[in-house]
Each structure stands twice: as C-alpha cells, then as structure tokens.
C-alpha cells in the first residue's frame, strides 16, 4: 500500500505549488502515471479518496494520464510498445531492452484559482 505515500507526496507538491502561485483553490490536477510504474490504480484511487479530505485537493478534479510502456532493443535497435517489463523484443526476441516510456510518476500541472 505504498500508494498512500505517493498520494501524500502529491498533496505536498500541490500545496507547495498552490502557495507559490498565490492560489486559494486547486480546480484540477493532472498527473502522469506510467503503465509500468509500480502503482496499482485501485489502491491509488482508494488512497486518494481518503487522503485528500480537508486538503487543498479535496474538491479538485483528478486527471490521470496513463502513459503506455515503450522500449528500445539494445540488440537490434527496434522501438516497440512494452506491456510487461519482462517482454522480449518482438523483432529479435532478445530481452536486452531499455525502457523509454511508461515508468513516469509525476505531477504534470495544476489549474488553480
């Protein structure tokens, strides 16, 4: 249940950013969560619901961008979509791959007022 720690970190970031933007409320928060990151979305949503209560994110719209996994084969240089970390290169069958996208976990933007 590390998702709670993640949500707490997001709340911290949102609070800091809202303060520096001189904002009173956050209307929307946009978060990138890669499909290959270690976040289980059900646990994340559950943790979110509980943790944002009485914080600046309480009434904010949560917009999540799921970023699909993408890898590059270090052997044959092919680029391909990666569903699981352990998938092989579809072109040459090797596992010498470099994950290019899908591990993201970042607060992208806020809409404040």
């Amino acid at each position: 249940m590390h998702e709670l720690s993640i949500v707490m970190s997001i709340i911290d970031i949102a609070q800091q950013q809202a303060k520096s933007a001189d904002a009173e409320t956050i209307d929307e928060i946009e978060i990138d969560i890669g499909c290959l990151s270690t976040v289980q979305m059900e646990a994340f949503d559950f943790a979110w619901e509980q943790a944002v209560k009485e914080t600046i994110l309480d009434n904010a719209i949560k917009k999540i961008n799921r970023i699909k996994g993408k890898a590059r084969c270090l052997d044959c240089d092919a680029s391909f979509p990666l569903e699981n970390i352990y998938d092989a290169c579809p072109k040459c069958g090797q596992h010498l791959i470099d994950i290019v996208e899908g591990k993201e976990l970042r607060v992208k933007s806020l809409i404040v007022s």
Binding site: D22, A23, V107, K108, S109
Partner: peptide
C-alpha cells in the same frame, strides 16, 4: 490581497516527479 486579484483560473506547469522529495 485575495480580493485584489480576480480569481481567474490559471494553469501551473508543475512537471515534478511525485517521489522527488524522497
């Protein structure tokens, strides 16, 4: 001060890793 600005919506580009602090 709050009432001097007009409560316009504003987009803040954050681009910060969630685990940045850790």
């Amino acid at each position: 001060d709050h009432h001097s600005h007009d409560h316009q919506k504003k987009v803040v580009a954050v681009e910060k890793d969630v685990l940045n602090e850790n």
